[in-house]
Structure formats: structure tokens, C-alpha cells
Design a protein around this nucleic acid. Sequence first.
DNA 1: TGGGATAATATGGGATATCATGGGAATTGA
DNA 2: TCAATTCCCATGATATCCCATATTATCCCA
Lengths: 159, 159
Amino acid sequence: MDLFLSTFEHRVDKKGRLSVPAPFRSVLERRRDPLYLFKSLTEPCLEGCGPERIGQIVDAIDSMDSLSAEVATLQTMLSSAQEMKLDSEGRIMLNADFMAFAELNDAALYAGIGRSFQIWLPDRYRGREAEARARAKTNGLPSLRLGRTNSTSSDNGGS
Amino acid sequence: MDLFLSTFEHRVDKKGRLSVPAPFRSVLERRRDPLYLFKSLTEPCLEGCGPERIGQIVDAIDSMDSLSAEVATLQTMLSSAQEMKLDSEGRIMLNADFMAFAELNDAALYAGIGRSFQIWLPDRYRGREAEARARAKTNGLPSLRLGRTNSTSSDNGGS
DNA sequence: TGGGATAATATGGGATATCATGGGAATTGA
DNA sequence: TCAATTCCCATGATATCCCATATTATCCCA
């Protein structure tokens, strides 16, 4: 199982080019997957993933009532999605819409979150991370009790 | 079942390299597991584990409401997680973020805690250990509830 | 049981490969 | 033709590989 993990901060040069982190590239290359980006529905960042996630959204729409508000929401995701072509150095070009949506200027932060990743304005991301850590300290960690596999009386993964 | 146990103090050289204790390495090699590190959510240390714990977090996210604060917390864990590649001498390279988070400089202490381990600034770890022992003397031991093999309804092991 | 031989381990340094990044030239499209 | 992209190459920084060495642990045989 290869995942998008860790964070990387890269520069956006004056031509608008942005390197995709080498570990993310190798995940995609290993699967021979193109890269898709779309605007997050809930946060001011871009989401990156491979085709399987796009396919999941399409399938979800097909299985839902086409008049529901949820379908409209999912369609919004798809209509902002774009297949990104990498240049020979592994960089993508962000169009003006993407740049404005995430409020990027000369730097971008990739945050791997497993099956997908996000692209943030670096300072904004770090603020969110600090908030999440503060919350975890006061509220405790989410319980990860998945009950499957060899879950014994293991204590939390954090701490 | 082989576990991460005991403590080891190793040097961080000027290139940022840190030997993984041989007993920890052999646990991972025996399971053919890569090593993952991430920043603890609650303490100033790094956490080390195998892929199964990372997979649990990914699966938990998928099964939760993507707008919840808990998902944000779990995503914070993933976005600090990193698959560590060992060099031919069994060392990892700690990036600047990891070093700064745990406030490491030229030495690091591994503390095995069963299914995972932690990496601490040595003096800080020893201080915490002394505190824990003092607490045990005044408050008594936590009940250990031994003798239950793989309980199904495992209660919160979290202390 | 003792003690020398042997292997494993932690650590360091130099050489090499990879990566992010920038810039110029060629190409495309309106 | 002009502007914007795409291709290609250069470069500095950094990670990775490979080898050396000191120290410690393990083995083996007298």
C-alpha cells in the first residue's frame, strides 16, 4: 500500500510552475496513474489524487438520486477537476483559477493524507496544523478502535 | 509476537543520520515492514510504527464524516508521517521538521512501548520517566487487568 | 571457565546520484 | 506577431551509497 504522506513545501516560480514532490510522483508512476487536481469543497486548498478517486465520485453520483443536493455537490468537485500534465522535471502548471482559489503566490505546501493530498498556502496550513494539535491536547485523540485484525488492548497510537 | 522494548540512546551525526537500534530493526525485518515515523499529537516526541497503524488511520478517515474535527486530527497525523528508508547501515535521516519538533540536536533516545516506539530528546525523556515513577508512588499503579487474551470489547487502554 | 578470535553494531567521511529550481530556446495558438 | 507554453539543459543543495573504523557483544575451543 503506497500512500501520500508527509508534507513538502515547494516554490512556485514566476512561470507558475510547481514541482510535485518526488515521493508523490513515484506513487503515481508506480501505478501508472495520471494526477488529478480539484478545488476542495470544504477548505481553501486544492486536492490531488489519482483516477480511482475520481471514479469513486462518478460512481457515487450514478448511484444517488440525481435531484439531491449531494449530487450537485459532487458534480461541483468533478467540474473543477483537471488532469495535470507533468513536465520532464516533474512539475505542474497551476492555472489562475487554482492559484486564486488556494490563494497561492510564490510557495505551496503539499500535505499527504493517505489516498490523496492537499495543496495549501504554507502559512495557512501551518496555522491549521497548530489548531489541530491544540485540539488534540485538550480533547484527546480520536479513538482508533477499528476492531479488525489484531486489535488487542492496544492503547492509542498517539501520545 | 515481537515487540519494541527497552530504551536506546544514539547519536545524531552532523548529517542528521540516526541509527535505528538493532533490536527494532530486526522486528521490522522479520515482518518485512517498512518503518514509519510521525510527530506525536500530544507530546514533543516522534512516534515509530509499522504500516498497520498507518493503514488503520487511513481507513478510519474514510469511514468518518469528513467534516469532523476528528478527521482533521487524523489527517494531521498522516501529513506528518513519513516512510523512513534505512541506509545500508540501518540509519534513518531525520528532516529538519522532525528534528525541530522533538527538539533533538546531537543525540536521541528510543523508548520501546510495545507495538510502537518513541524518539525523545534524552534528557527530556529521563525527566518524564522520573515524573511517572513519582506519580506511581503517590497515586499507585494503574490497574493492569491481565490475563485477557485479545479481548473483543477492548476498553480504552489509553491512560 | 577463561580468553582470544570473530561477528555485529554504531558512527564517521568522501564520492555519487537525486531533486528542486531557474532560465533560455523552440513551439504552439490566437 | 506576440504571448504563453513546452522542451531542454544547467546548477546548487541535499540525500544516498559505499567504505573505513572503533567499540562492544558473541562464539569457540583449550
